[in-house]
Every structure is written in structure tokens, then in C-alpha cells.
Write a protein that binds this DNA or RNA. Structure first.
Lengths: 346, 346
DNA sequence: GGTTAGCACTCAGGCGGCAAGAGTGCTAAA
DNA sequence: TTTAGCACTCTTGCCGCCTGAGTGCTAACC
């Protein structure tokens, strides 16, 4: 099978996909002739469509209805036909002015980003919280709440604030806590949480009978503080927009999707894939490898701060999605978030 | 119109409502005769049903289909027919063992409660976060992040941890911050956040030209810290369960409900009504005064800690809801949460 | 007077047939 | 290689029909 598509086939495929994106209906040969720059008869278009179906780019829901793109079709479209322009000035302005970005804590900033993604794109916005493990330690503080409870607050380089309640079995004076605080802040600043944990553990192992009682306590306290990094969280906004999509009028499918949203782990895993890569990543349909969200696509881009890549954000919607419109939104939001986090981290 | 219902009418109304709750279908006279303890003919039941319709407790979707309860019907059922038993041992055990309740911070605890409510009831679980204003101040801590940024962490009596980033225009040394911290913790402990704010404001006004420069700074810093209590948040779990309800097969309605969930303010307002009251409150249909969630009912109970009522929690679902099963779940969860918060606050 | 049997009536929902419309595949001509 | 023409397919909406569930009413019954 000659898998090369000539220019005309590509143009027709593009027209079909864009028409389908616009109408959500199977598209017939006639509609394409109207869309195409060159003048072609429906019959010719039909011949090409038959080829495209042969080659797996299209399929028809039943004999004699129009064609709809397959996943392979979308993939080809996204990879080679899609021309992504930069984001428009007006959209850029809208993102920047419609949301309050300044003076937010990281978690609020990320929520605002998710909302912005959703409302700008009319799809569901997703932002994964940074994996704590990978973030850079900046500051720790212990707040004694009672004789057996201590609140640990730590702040990462990029401004993520995490707090955790830990139980202690021995009473510590405020002065001792302060000493421990100072020790940790002095020795651990600049390390990633992961490196810090490793260091703490190895120190504890190495110096089992730790001569310095205070140090010993510091070790124990802080390793308790960092134990159990909560599994990745995802901020989801605009789920109701999913219900707007005509292709999800099937309640059963809708239920599966919403259940996946609730569990979040699926979405986290998908977004996590986008963290490494640069630029906008597009995952189409079964490429997600999760049948719950069959027929959905995810557009993701990673955001970072000076200290490196932190996580990724994006949107999820039906595979029939106006990629040309949506990709710049995701792209710009990611860079905006990165920029804001950089500003915040000093 | 003699609005008094005699015993038999009540029994029949009860049977109709319970049958409808079980089947989600309009119920006919025949089905009722089977359900009823006393032996009655369908014709008799029909007569009574006609009366009940006359009086506004029932209505029929169209001539010659069974009857369904009106809101007034549900209201009567809930007020006078419903016999709520205590929670069963098995359910109690399930709530307590299926979730990790110990050693959680308040926000995690409340999320666990929302999940538990949802999974126990098979409806959507709701928990409102305490209004910060009403909670009792316990401890404040300032963490200096840079020359212009300070992280304020404060803890309430019941263990709610709140942090906020504030910008400062003058540099403060660590020692100064500590002095301010100590001052605030000493003078403000035990006050409600609201009282504290008032006190701060009045102090600032009274002593405009404050002689003590440090005190002046303390005032400014802390009033910035407490400014802008975020409007009430609600933890929602199990929204996908809403899709399971046969009465919401209508996409339009579903969309409206999900939009309300996203905005949260509607739910917060409803839960807030439940804060004052004691015991379980039931809000049915249009009593919610929000058309977006027409046909829904909310079951709520307030939770509290030693320092007083904090907020409320509950579930939301279609008005056709097994109240007898659901009310004890909400009730028990509220007392469980209250108990756990009490344990935590020492 | 309350209760019941009987009966006519109503209405939703399912099913089959029918026509229209959209779209295809194929063939033959340009 | 493209196109016009044509037969064919399949969905969709519509109409009418029937069935079943359920009602309201009336008249008989206890």
C-alpha cells in the first residue's frame, strides 16, 4: 500500500477533518467540493475518499453516509497538515486580563490557569500539580501545636507551599524546634525534595547511634515531614463543558469519562507524559491507552520555573477538536504560568 | 379543603412515595395494593390517590399514568411519615474502617468525609469548608521568603491550616518577624478571626500615630494576612453518581446541574443554611431557590468542634431519594467529623 | 357511607411500513 | 484522469396501528 499521500489527497483529508470538526457530522463528498480551493466534482472527491478510507485515514459509520476521520486521520492531520499560528493578540489579552494572576500563591495560580484554559478553549482544563519530589527545597518551618503535634510547613523554590501535620512522641521545646529548623534550612537549601529525602535517610542510616541528639531529632522529624508524597493531583475545571459535546450524548460513555475525572490518576498519568517533552503534545484517542476516555484527545504542554520543568497543563476534549485554535491557547498558558512562577520565585 | 390527611391516606401516600423512590416510575394503584398491609382494592386506592392529587401531594405526568409525588408530597413525607432509625452497625463500621481518618489535617479530613458521604449514600457528597471568619485563632507564623515576600501561616483551633503570601514594602529582619509573631500569638490567641480582625482594625485606627514602630508593623502585616477571606469553598465528591440517576437523562438539565457544581456558590449557600440548625436538615426541590438544581434535594447536617459550629456537610441528589437510608449516613458522618475535629484540636 | 367490580377511555411506547434525502460505488463517456 | 449518470444503500422522520398500563366514573355491594 502506497502510504504516501499526494497533495490533493492531503488537501481533501484536511478539508474533511476540518469540516467534521466544525459540524460533528459525517462529511460527504459534496460538502468538500464547496470547501476546496480547486474546483473538483463530487465524484472525484469520492474516489479520493475511498482511497483515504482504504489507507485508514477515514471510515464511514455505515454504507452511504459521509466519512469521519479515524484516529490515524487525526494523527496525520495533527502531524503534517496542522498549521499552528501564534496566539492572537486578542486572546492573549483576554487570558491576561480576565484572570487575576498577580500575587497568587502557586496553587491559586495553577487553579486560575486551569480555569483560563477551560474558558478560553471551551473544553475541560487540566493542570497537574508539580510532583513534590522533583521540586527544589527552599524553606521549612515547624509550628508546634501541642505537646504531641507539630505542623510542618515547607516552601519550594517555585513557591509551592505544602503543610503537613506530624505526630511526635517526645516533647520538643520551641527553642529546640527552632534549632532544628535552622539546621535544616541551612544544610538543605537548594536540594530537590527527593535528594533531600535521600540525604536524610542515608545520614540516619550512616550515623545510627547519632551522637548529636538534636540532629537525630531533626532527621526523624523531617523524614516524617516528607514521607508519603501524596500521589499526583490534577486541577480540573470546566467539566460541564464536556456535556456540551454532541458526540457524548451517550450517557454510558459520559459516565465513564466522569469517573475517570474523579479518579484523576488517569489524567495525571497522561499529563505526566507531557512533562518531559518540550512544546505542545497531542495525545489522540487510544494513544491515551485508557478505554474510559475513548474518543478523547488531550493537548498538553509543560510548565517550568527557573529550577526546571515542574509539571504540565492542558485541555481534554473529544478528538474532534479545533486543534488549530486550541494548541496556541495551551502553549501560551504554559509559558505564561512559567513566567509567573519565575517572577514569584524571587 | 380539609388538609388533614387521615391515617389511611397517609399510609397510601407513604407507599406511593416509597415505591416511586424504589422504581423511579410513576406508580399505579395496583402496585400500591400489593405494598399495603391492609387489603384494599385498586379502586379504593384510586379514590384516595385522586384526593391526594387534589390536595397537592401527588401529580400525574399525563392522564392515565401512575402518580408521582410533588414537592409538597416529599415535604409531608419527610416531615411526618419518615421514621429515621439510627445508623446500622455495619454501615457505621464501613464508614469508620473504609477511610483513613486518623492523623489527617482538617482539609484532608473534610475531603475524606465528602468521599465517605458519597460512597456510602451513592449520591454526591458535599462538605463546606469552615468560614474562616468564624473560626478561632490559634497560632500564626511568618516565614520570610524574600525581601519583599512573606508567607503567613495560621492555624485555627480546629486545626485548619491556612497560608497566604503577602507582599511587604519594607524589609523586616527575621528577629523583627519573630517579635511580631510572638506578639500576635500572645495577644490574639482564643479570639475568632473576625474578632481579631476587628481588634486589629480598631487598634490601627485608634493609635494612628503608633509610637511603637514594631507594633505598627505587626498590625499592618496581620491585617494584610487576614484580608480577603476567600468566599466559601465546598468539597464535592461523586458527581459522576449524578449521571446514574434515571431522572436526569435529559442532557440540558444535567448541564445546568454540573454548571452549578462548578460555580459552587449555590451549594455553599445551601449548606450554609444548615450551619445554624441542629440535626439533619432536608431541603427539597424549589426550597433550594435555585432553578439550576430543580428536582434535587439536599440533606445536610452541621459539624462542629469544641469551639462551636464550623460548617455543614451532606449530600445532594434527586428529590426521589431514599431519605430513610441517607439521613442516618449524613447524621453520623457529621458527628464523626465533629468528634475527630475535637480530638485533633488538643 | 365507604368499598369494590366493571367498563369505557386515555395515553405512552413500540413496531412496521413508507417516503425523502443524503451519500456512496460503479460504469461509461469525455 | 476526471466527470456525469445512475442504481443502490442506509438513516431519519413520519404516520398509523396496536398493546398495555392506568385512570375516572358508575353502579352495585356490604
Amino acid at each position: 500500500m502506497a502510504n504516501e499521500l499526494n497533495t490533493r489527497s492531503q488537501q481533501i483529508l484536511e478539508a474533511i477533518i476540518e469540516e467534521h470538526i466544525a459540524t460533528a457530522q459525517p462529511v460527504g463528498s459534496r460538502a468538500i467540493t464547496a470547501r476546496l480551493a480547486v474546483r473538483l466534482s463530487p465524484a472525484t472527491v469520492r474516489n479520493v475518499m475511498a482511497e483515504l478510507e482504504e489507507q485508514g485515514y477515514l471510515c464511514s459509520p455505515h454504507t452511504s453516509s459521509g466519512r469521519i476521520p479515524t484516529e490515524q486521520g487525526y494523527r496525520f492531520y495533527v502531524d503534517t497538515l496542522l498549521r499552528v499560528s501564534g496566539i492572537g493578540r486578542r486572546q492573549k489579552d483576554r487570558i491576561e486580563t480576565e484572570y487575576q494572576w498577580k500575587g497568587l500563591q502557586m496553587s491559586e495560580l495553577l487553579r486560575a490557569a486551569s480555569k483560563a484554559l477551560s474558558s478560553m478553549s471551551s473544553y475541560t482544563g487540566l493542570v497537574m500539580l508539580p510532583r513534590l519530589q522533583k521540586t527544589i527545597f527552599r524553606h521549612i518551618e515547624f509550628v508546634k501545636l501541642s505537646s504531641s503535634k507539630v505542623l510542618v510547613v515547607f516552601v519550594t523554590q517555585s513557591g509551592l507551599v505544602q503543610n503537613k501535620l506530624i505526630e511526635i512522641d517526645e516533647d520538643l521545646t520551641a527553642a529546640e524546634l527552632e534549632q532544628i529548623t535552622n539546621y535544616l534550612n541551612r544544610t538543605m537549601a537548594g536540594l530537590s525534595i527527593q535528594a533531600m529525602q535521600n540525604q536524610l535517610l542515608s545520614k540516619m542510616a550512616r550515623e545510627k547511634a547519632l551522637y548529636d541528639r538534636l540532629l537525630q531529632r531533626a532527621m526523624r522529624l523531617s523524614s516524617a515531614a516528607f514521607a508519603g508524597d501524596p500521589e499526583g493531583d490534577v486541577i480540573i475545571e470546566g467539566t460541564s463543558l464536556f456535556l456540551e459535546q454532541p458526540e457524548f450524548c451517550d450517557m454510558e460513555r459520559m459516565k465513564r469519562i466522569f469517573r475517570a475525572f474523579e479518579r484523576k490518576s488517569v489524567l495525571f498519568e497522561l499529563l505526566d507524559r507531557g512533562v518531559q517533552g518540550s512544546g505542545v503534545q497531542i495525545i489522540i484517542g487510544s494513544e491515551t491507552e485508557h478505554s474510559e476516555i475513548a474518543g478523547c484527545s488531550l493537548i498538553a504542554a509543560s510548565y517550568s520555573s527557573r529550577s526546571g520543568s515542574l509539571g504540565s497543563l492542558g485541555i481534554i476534549g473529544p478528538s474532534r477538536m479545533p486543534y488549530a485554535k486550541v494548541v496556541p491557547i495551551v502553549d501560551y498558558t504554559a509559558t505564561l504560568v512559567s513566567r509567573l512562577l519565575d517572577n514569584d520565585s524571587d
